[in-house]
């Protein structure tokens, strides 16, 4: 009877543990907080063109605040999108980044973009514009527009230099649901194109975001946000996670063994007395 009771307690324990794990797993990713980085987690299959795939729920979102683009003309003082939530997944070959943001209306001109630096030189977050005392590099821009139903691979190095690449390596797809855009961008982790940013597993690189609400002004019929009039973020960090590394567990076990051995020798020595 006692044994049966114990088994029952075990079952309750397992149940409670599972419930706790489920809560942490399921609810955790929904608690997006302001972040400084996104890590693309290693997975077996990347939902490269499915913004609603359940795999996205298995990774936590990083949240980044957006500002109206006031850095250079033509400026804008107020924008629709105040934050973007970002997730990343990769399988060693493909990397996919999911942007999610609130937008009350679905419009053909709704658009979103991700920006990276290309090469070793730092690039200014505003289209890699020239800097006074520092030699800057170009940026690689991934641009998705609702009505085009695809993502474009682009480069810029300064204002007015935005150019669509000859070699297109990107995929992009957006889904509008319940007042939210979910847009997935995907690409090979490395490409042979020198104009592309390259991802080295384990290495943090800079990432920035831009969003355009393609809503039209009811009076004039003009787009409220277009071109340089958009919501922008600052530079933040992104990395493709490396393969799991178990060597530190090995070192820890080795250290435990050495410490226990040390204790054993000391105790033996003490028990034998000073003459030993």
């Amino acid at each position: 009877m006692k044994a049966a009771n114990q088994r029952l307690e075990w079952k309750w324990g397992i149940l409670a543990g599972t419930a706790m794990a489920a809560i942490l797993w399921g609810v955790g990713p929904a608690w997006a907080q302001e972040s400084v980085s996104i890590r693309a987690m290693l997975t077996t299959s990347v939902p490269a063109d499915d913004p609603t795939a359940s795999a996205w729920n298995s990774v936590a979102a990083s949240q980044f605040p957006m500002s109206p683009q006031v850095h250079w003309p033509t400026r804008i003082q107020e924008v629709t999108v105040k934050d973007v939530r970002v997730r990343g997944l990769h399988d060693g070959k493909q990397v996919a980044i999911l942007l999610e943001y609130d937008d009350p209306t679905q419009d053909p001109d709704d658009a979103a973009a991700i920006e990276f630096m290309v090469g070793d030189k730092k690039a200014h977050f505003a289209h890699g514009q020239p800097m006074g005392q520092v030699e800057g590099g170009p940026v690689n821009i991934w641009f998705w527009k609702n009505k085009d139903a695809k993502a474009l691979d682009m480069n810029a190095k300064g204002f007015g230099t935005l150019k669509v690449q000859d070699q297109q390596d990107l995929k992009g797809k957006g889904v509008y649901q319940d007042g939210k855009w979910k847009v997935v961008f995907s690409r090979a982790v490395t490409t042979g194109d020198a104009n592309d940013t390259q991802f080295k597993p384990g290495e943090f690189i800079n990432i920035a975001f831009a969003v355009w609400d393609g809503q039209k002004d009811p009076a004039s019929g003009d787009l409220k946000e277009k071109g340089s009039q958009k919501a922008v973020s600052s530079w933040w960090y992104f990395r493709v996670d490396p393969q799991p590394d178990y060597t530190s567990y090995f070192y820890a076990l080795l250290a435990i063994g050495l410490a226990a051995g040390f204790e054993f020798v000391i105790i033996r020595k003490l028990r034998k007395g000073p003459s030993a």
Partner: peptide
Amino acid sequence: FPLLVGWQTY
């Protein structure tokens, strides 16, 4: 003691 050393190493 060994656990602490192990944790520190990890």
